[in-house]
Design a protein around this nucleic acid. Structure first.
Lengths: 119, 119
DNA sequence: CCGTATCCGTAGGGATACTG
DNA sequence: CAGTATCCCTACGGATACGG
C-alpha cells in the first residue's frame, strides 16, 4: 500500500490535477448524454482551452471518457463518460458532499489557527 | 459550484498533495490511538522529514489532526485524527477501494491507447 | 527526537498565438 | 470549432544542513 506503484497514489495524481474531477462531475451530470468541447468549456468556468484539451486527453487515455468526432466542417467533437468514468463519479460525489459539509469548519479552523500564532 | 471559492476545489488542493491522504489513512488505522512523528515516518515509506512536517502542519491547521507534545527531553510529539479527520477517512476509503479495483483497468487502457497512437 | 531553513529541479498550469 | 505550440511563472516537493 502506498508503494511507488500504489493504485491510490496514481489515482490521486490524476484527480488531484486541477480540472479532472470537475470534468468528471460535469460529464456525469450530462450522462448518458454527450457534451461538446465548447459545452464543457462553458460548464467549467475559468478553464483555458489548453487545460481542457490536456485534461480530456488524459481522461480519454485512462478510458474514463470516450471521444467521438463528427467529420463535418468544421468538426464537432463529443465527449461522454464511459462506464468506468461513471463508476468513479460515485466516490467523487461522496468527497464533494464531505467537502460541502465540512469545508466551512475547516475554514474556521484555519482562521482560528492563524489568529493563534499571531500572538 | 467549482467557483474559485468552491469547497471541493479547496479540498482537492489539500488531499491532492502527495502525502496528505496517506497520512490520514495511517492515522485512521491507528485511531483512536496516537502516533509519534517517527512512527508516522515509518508507516509512510519514502516521505522526507520535511514533507512529513509540512503535511502534518497543514492537517493540524485544518483541524483534521490534533498535536500533543510531551515536554520531556527530548520531546515526544503525538498526532491523532480529530473527529473531523476521521469523518474524512470514510470518503477517502471509498476512493481507495475504487482505485484498487479499477487502476489495473486504467493501466491497461493507458497501454492500449499508447500502442494505438504508435501506429 | 522533532523539527526548521535553504537550495534547487521539475512539472502543473496560465496567456497567447497559430492551424486544419 | 476544436484543438496544438510556445513561453513563462510558480509551487510542490526532494536533499541537505542546522537548531532546541
Amino acid at each position: 500500500m502506498f508503494q511507488p506503484q500504489c493504485p491510490t497514489r496514481h489515482l490521486l495524481d490524476r484527480i488531484g490535477t486541477k480540472w479532472t474531477s470537475m470534468a468528471v462531475k460535469v460529464l456525469a451530470e450530462a450522462a448518458p448524454g454527450e457534451l461538446r468541447f465548447s459545452q464543457l468549456r462553458q460548464r467549467m468556468p475559468g478553464i483555458s482551452q489548453k487545460m481542457l484539451s490536456v485534461t480530456l486527453r488524459s481522461l480519454v487515455r485512462d478510458g474514463l471518457v470516450a471521444r467521438r468526432v463528427e467529420p463535418t466542417v468544421p468538426p464537432r467533437v463529443f465527449y461522454r463518460l464511459t462506464a468506468l468514468g461513471l463508476s468513479l463519479d460515485a466516490p467523487l460525489a461522496a468527497l464533494r458532499t464531505w467537502a460541502e459539509e465540512h469545508m466551512p469548519e475547516i475554514e474556521r479552523n484555519n482562521h482560528a489557527h492563524d489568529a493563534q500564532e499571531a500572538d
